[in-house]
Amino acid sequence: MDLLNAVLQGLLLGGLYALFATGLSIMFGVMRIVNLAHGDLAVVASFLALALVTNTFLPLWAVVLVAIPIFSVLGYALQRTLIQRSLGAGPLATLLVTFGLSIVLQNVLLESFSADTRTLEAGSFATSAIELNDTISLSYIGLFGLVAAVVTIVAIQLFVSRTRTGRMMRAASDDPETASVVGASPAHIYGIATAIAFATVALAGLIFSMRSSFDPSIGPSRLLFAFEAVVIGGLGSLWGTLLGGLALGLTQSVVSHYDPASAVLAGHLVFLAVLAFRPQGLIPARAV
């Protein structure tokens, strides 16, 4: 029964990875870039929540509701300034700029909050669980992560297939120049895509911080998990990203059941195996 527990916990963790990877997947799908500061932004969200919870009387759910719009606006602004400019400055520029941003964010966090490991006091929500039997209990926060991933991905799929702006997002992903001659500003459309990506990053970052402790240097390893989820699932497919996240979470959790020290390595090896034997990913698909 312990193995079953490991499988279920893996799916919950994988759901959170998928939610977190969604932003990376969207930004790649629409703009063909990898945001190397993705992991650090999630850590910024965690510290933002920590600061709000300790310094204000806002309850945690209110912090979540505040942080997500803040991140959306931040994402839009960052796209319209740094990222849009780097898209025009040569093929390496986006990578160099987001990598620079990653280093800057890490060290600003280090300077402001020190290297100490933190935990976010999430109250009864974080500690409660559904007890299925003696050995299996599913935490509310874990379930929340998985549900949030599925709801987010369904919502984004509906947005890109049903709405005027979502349709233009796919169009701009195909051909930004032609999108501009039908009246859309590619920079604005990209800004909206980045805003959505940042909203998911904030949500995922907050759930991460309710589940486990964090410190300013944890961003890059989170980025790698998100990246692996995207590649395992298949580039440009959000359902693929969900599946990739679940596969990664499952692998880490099951291996951890036998040897906790090998969990992360096992995840990396699954990623390399996908590269070797199924480089198109589990669900190869078109953009967004």
Partner: peptide, 8 residues
Amino acid sequence: LRGDYFAV
């Protein structure tokens, strides 16, 4: 992997 994905 190509481009940005090669990097990561």
